[in-house]
Amino acid sequence: MKVIFLKDVKGKGKKGEIKNVPDGYARNFLFKKGLAIEATPANLKELE
């Protein structure tokens, strides 16, 4: 799953980066803790 990092996550990504991460990791950790959001076309446009 492609995500946009909202905060730095040690060993995974830095704020503003767009990366592919495992689906479970994104849903169960990154999204729940507010560390990242899904890289949807709308979210990507908002980032620019």
Rank of each mutant, 00 (worst) to 15 (best):
K12W: 15
I37R: 08
L44S: 05
I4M: 09
V9W: 06
A26P: 01
K7R: 13
K14S: 10
A42V: 10
F29V: 11
L44K: 05
F29R: 03
N43Y: 09
K45F: 12
I18P: 01
A36V: 05
F5K: 00
E38N: 04
L47F: 14
K32N: 07
M1N: 03
L44V: 11
G13M: 03
E38V: 07
L30F: 02
K14D: 05
G24Y: 14
V9R: 01
N28M: 10
D23L: 15
K33N: 15
K2L: 15
A36Y: 00
K45R: 12
V21G: 00
K15S: 10
V21F: 08
E48D: 12
A36Q: 02
A39D: 02
K14G: 06
L35G: 01
D8I: 03
K14L: 12
F31V: 07
K45M: 13
A26S: 04
K10F: 14
F5W: 03
A36G: 04
A42G: 13
A36F: 01
K10P: 15
K15A: 13
E48W: 09
D23K: 15
E46K: 10
V9I: 09
E38R: 11
G24S: 14
F31A: 01
L35M: 09
L6E: 01
E46S: 09
G24D: 15
K10W: 15
L35W: 13
K14W: 09
F5P: 00
K12H: 15
K33S: 09
I18T: 06
K45I: 11
V9L: 06
I4W: 03
L30E: 00
P22S: 10
K15M: 09
K7Y: 14
P41F: 10
F29I: 11
G13Q: 02
G16N: 08
V3L: 03
I4T: 02
R27L: 13
E38Q: 11
K33E: 10
M1F: 08
E17N: 04
I18L: 06
G16I: 01
G16D: 05
L6N: 02
F29L: 06
F29G: 02
I4S: 01
G11W: 07
T40K: 06
K32S: 08
I37D: 01
N28G: 14
K32H: 08
T40A: 06
L6K: 03
A36T: 02
K14F: 12
